[in-house]
């Protein structure tokens, strides 16, 4: 579903990604690990279309040139980014935001939009499955949420929008062990033959709960090593220095 060839990205004349190659097939879970400053967050920003980068190379997403699409078009086509730092938007009710978002995506796909009652039913069901307190959904979007609540909210949004490719950018950062478990269970529940995941993380911890099919090590803007889930454990022991 996703094929990345020789992807390079610059910001402020500084090269961050220096020729990255990666292939993700439907149903696969890939983890990208790397030290700070290796380009992990840049990869998730570039894939979701954030402005400000000069990008070269090729990214094919279901045989379409992903780099030509606007941010929201990518979202309509099933790319979801769980933000490392979810944004606060004062005055905007979380439910209303989610409904607007879901219906924008449904509309782009030519599906029937949900009315308020259908939507609330869906939210109730998903929140139940993920064991989330739906009370936070009637609050302003991420305003005054704790770090854990923000991350849970991202996973809930992911489960409602039902994306094809979910990119989790350091979703484990700032989570205690209990929150980490809940978030991971949420992700595992969403795993299917159709949906793929790209999990970006600094630590192996998250991968104990979400078992990846492939692990890639990103150092200095390039993937230097790929392997199975055992690679994560190896890294945990030896550190990134052994590979650089």
């Amino acid at each position: 579903m996703l094929t990345i060839k020789d992807l390079k990205a610059n910001i402020d004349n500084k090269e961050i990604l220096k020729g990255l190659n990666l292939e993700i097939k439907p149903g696969e879970v890939h983890a990208i690990m790397g030290p700070n400053g290796s380009g992990k967050s840049t990869l998730s920003n570039v894939l979701s279309g954030k402005k400000g980068y000069t990008v070269t190379g090729e990214v094919k997403y279901f045989n379409e040139n992903l780099l030509d699409l606007e941010i929201e078009e990518r979202a309509h086509k099933g790319i979801f980014l769980a933000f490392q730092y979810p944004l606060e938007i004062p005055g905007v009710n979380t439910n209303i935001f989610l409904k607007t978002s879901l219906n924008a995506i449904k509309k782009a796909k030519g599906e029937k939009e949900l009315d308020a009652i259908e939507f609330l039913k869906l939210v109730k069901q998903k929140a139940g499955e993920l064991k989330f307190d739906e009370k936070i959904l009637s609050r302003q979007l991420n305003v005054g949420f704790s770090g854990g609540e923000k991350k849970k909210n991202e996973i809930l949004q992911m489960s409602i929008l039902n994306p094809k490719l979910s990119i989790l950018d350091e979703t484990d950062s700032g989570l205690d062990i209990d929150a980490l478990k809940i978030v991971s269970e949420g992700v595992n529940a969403l795993r299917s033959k159709e949906s793929s995941f790209l999990i970006i993380t600094h630590y192996q911890r998250l991968l104990e709960y979400i078992k990846p099919d492939f692990v890639h090590v990103l150092i200095n803007g390039q993937i230097v090593k790929s392997g199975g889930s055992e690679l994560a454990l190896e890294l945990e022991k030896k550190g990134y220095e052994s590979l650089s």
């Binding site: 990518r74 979202a75 905007v92 209303i96 607007t100």
Partner: peptide, 19 residues
């Protein structure tokens, strides 16, 4: 953030301003 959730520029502005 709003664009990533599928809203276009105008919908995003309208949503944020209404908030």
């Amino acid at each position: 953030y709003c664009n990533q959730r599928g809203l276009n520029q105008e919908e995003a502005v309208s949503l944020i301003v209404n908030g």
